Amino acid sequence: MDASATPTEEMKRDPMHFTDRITPGGDWPVQAGRYRLVISRACPWAHRVVLARRLYGLDEAISLAVTDPVQEIIDDENHWVFTSRTGSPDDKDPVLGIHALREAYLAREPGYDGGVSVPGLVDVPTGHLVSNDFNQLTLDFGTEWTELHREGAPDLYPKHLRDEIDALNEEIYNDVNNGVYKAGFAPTQASYDRAVHALFARLDRLEDRLTRQRFLLGPTITEADLRLWPTLVRFDAVYHGHFKCNIRKLIEYPALWAYARDLFQQPGFGDTVNLNHIREHYYAVHTGINPTRIVAAGPDPAQWLTPHHREELGGRPFGEGTPPEPPPLPDRVPPVV
């Protein structure tokens, strides 16, 4: 997702430009093997889509392409690229045959001159980008791709909770998901103060909420948890220091920290995290914030595997469903320890 700010303006995000939807019988039909999901392991917006793909069991139906965590400068702009160190021979994705994700954008719209972001869902036969709408992608994976869901896939967006999920998602997006960026890229002290205090006020409310229940909407994981958690898993590693979100660390919130570990230790969550990619991307790419490009070493990732005791609150993480099987070998990430 792209952001911009002048020295006197708060950061603003560009609206999604490619928002086509894949639906049964639509112009872009649901079809196993037709689409490739391009992500960065560093990006929280891509991470939520990876979580949905894993939990619904769409690993085989939608292939995964992982970019290098460090963007390459092309035409004076940072771009997501494929390199041999992330498993792309000759620095090209082996399925799409492209070096930079922007090639799929230009294949779809040759005159496109906007930002290029992950995730990107690409139509393999044409090489055209279908969507970079990370919000809609997770919802559609849950509601439009059901014919290809694994047996035992959870219902993360149940009809009776959708209004509540949507309202909470909006608050989380404004104050937390986007809030860390508004603080990190604040052009003035006043804009930073507004963003950082709104962020921690929301975290305080979420702490209270999670003191009383295991997950955001109660005893089971929902779409709302998929939206909050990618920010939490990056919080102490990059947002606390790099983005100056340092009123408190995540580990100083008893309920939020235990909740984050609970999810990390669930199949489909921790097995999608590459903390090395996260640290390297943020510290190496954001040269306006970190001109030396020195990558911070901590915190110790082994903390994510410590007991959380959230099971004492009861509940069933996957509701009437079951946990996903381990990811396919090409999609696996290095263990945290």
Rank of each mutant, 00 (worst) to 15 (best):
V295A: 00
D113F: 01
Q266M: 15
G127R: 04
R234D: 00
A186T: 01
E72H: 12
R150E: 09
R202F: 08
E311W: 06
A65Y: 09
M16C: 14
D204N: 15
P267Q: 11
L51N: 01
V50C: 13
P254Q: 09
A186N: 02
A190E: 15
Y239H: 11
A153F: 00
T306W: 13
R310L: 06
H309S: 11
S4M: 09
R194T: 15
P119T: 01
D166E: 08
K12R: 14
S4Q: 10
A5C: 12
D20R: 02
N135V: 02
R209A: 14
N132H: 13
L226K: 03
A183Y: 08
S191Q: 13
A284W: 04
A42W: 03
V233E: 00
W28G: 06
T292D: 05
F82P: 09
R36P: 09
D2C: 10
D123I: 06
N246I: 06
D27T: 13
R36L: 03
E9N: 14
V30W: 08
A190N: 08
T306C: 05
W28E: 07
V176N: 00
D113P: 01
A255D: 11
I251L: 10
V333F: 04
A195D: 02
P7M: 01
R202P: 01
A260D: 03
L168A: 03
E280F: 05
P301H: 01
Q303M: 09
R205E: 14
W257T: 01
I73M: 07
I247Q: 13
H309M: 10
Q136C: 09
H308P: 09
T126L: 10
I247W: 09
L250Y: 05
L96Y: 03
F18Y: 07
P125G: 12
A198S: 13
